[in-house]
């Protein structure tokens, strides 16, 4: 907000700022908790990734052996690729299907708040149970199969519906739908309607108006939604564990195994660090590429 009472020249010291000391005091409890709960654990994670687990003993000499292990073994490279591929597919599907829905609410619906509430109600159930619901639907004896069979449309149940990357993608796309709808909706809602009027006035039909005005202006929302979905889904545990089967395993499941079953924490840590960096890299390059593409459109 602009501070009307203070000359623009000293706007860097607006009147609402009092002496700074109480501010730091107010901030410190939160900072302490977050340093203890975030910075310290992450630092230790990196530390662990540089150590070695020798049987039960933890050897604390710094070594890059874990990273070498992770990066050199083909199954892990495949795991990274699969996780990123699955998340990319989820992101694309979710955003693509959510866009027309968000468009509808932003431009055509009249009781917008009602639609938004309706769109989020399904997600007030437990995430675990929602994933499980998909298991019920896609399974051998599940809703789709027993339904189709009882209708006589198929003789034997479809086996390809569950326990593979496909089921993971479908389940995650369902679970993350609201995270796509809301950011896209917000950015569509913000578009000044008079811009569309102006475009029409200048001769553009509905499709061209959409392509030349609406779509580019909603791009920040699309990119935001994509990042919001992509990053967390790469690290999802529950969905691949319940509906992924051996072919749909993702990063989190393997990391969990290293920690909870095998007990090789340094290796698990290295795996986690590499995944974070890989995902970060992919996200960064994708966003940069998207921004560059947007700039070129303009």
């Amino acid at each position: 907000m602009s501070d009307r009472s203070v000359p623009p020249a000293i706007a860097h010291a607006p009147r609402k700022w009092r002496a700074d000391a109480p501010g730091y005091a107010l901030l410190s409890p939160t900072l302490v908790v977050m340093v203890l709960g975030l910075a310290a654990p992450l630092a230790m994670l990196v530390l662990y990734s540089l150590w070695r687990q020798n049987g039960i003993a933890l050897q604390t000499q710094v070594t890059l052996g874990q990273y070498a292990s992770v990066l050199s073994r083909a199954p892990f490279r495949a795991l990274f690729l699969r996780s990123i591929a699955i998340s990319s597919a989820v992101t694309l599907a979710t955003v693509a299907f959510a866009y027309p829905m968000a468009y509808f609410v932003a431009f055509e619906a009249r009781a917008k708040f009602l639609w938004l509430v309706l769109l989020t109600i399904p997600f007030w159930t437990s995430y675990l149970l929602r994933v499980f619901a998909w298991k019920l639907i896609l399974g051998w004896n599940g809703v789709i199969n027993s339904g189709l069979m009882s209708l006589g449309l198929i003789k034997a149940p479809f086996g390809f519906l569950l326990y593979n990357p496909f089921s993971v993608i479908v389940t995650l796309a369902h679970a993350w739908a609201p995270f796509a709808i809301l950011p896209i909706y917000v950015s569509l809602e913000k578009i000044d309607r008079s811009l569309l009027d102006a475009a029409a006035d200048l001769g553009d039909g509905p499709l061209r108006r959409f392509l030349r005005v609406t779509l580019p202006l909603s791009l920040p929302g699309i990119i935001g939604a994509a990042v919001l979905i992509f990053v967390p889904t790469t690290g999802d545990y529950v969905t691949p564990a319940l509906v992924g089967g051996p072919r749909g395993t993702m990063l989190a499941n393997v990391i969990d195994v290293e920690f909870e079953r095998i007990g090789n924490w340094p290796f698990g840590a290295a795996l986690a660090v590499v995944s974070m960096m890989a995902v970060g890299l992919v996200t960064l390059s994708a966003v940069t590429a998207a921004r560059a593409a947007v700039a070129r459109i303009r």
Partner: peptide, 15 residues
């Protein structure tokens, strides 16, 4: 704008 009149007023008020 910027001449100090509001600052003066606020000084009288005690802010």
């Amino acid at each position: 704008s910027g001449c100090g009149k509001t600052t003066l007023l606020r000084t009288i008020a005690g802010f």
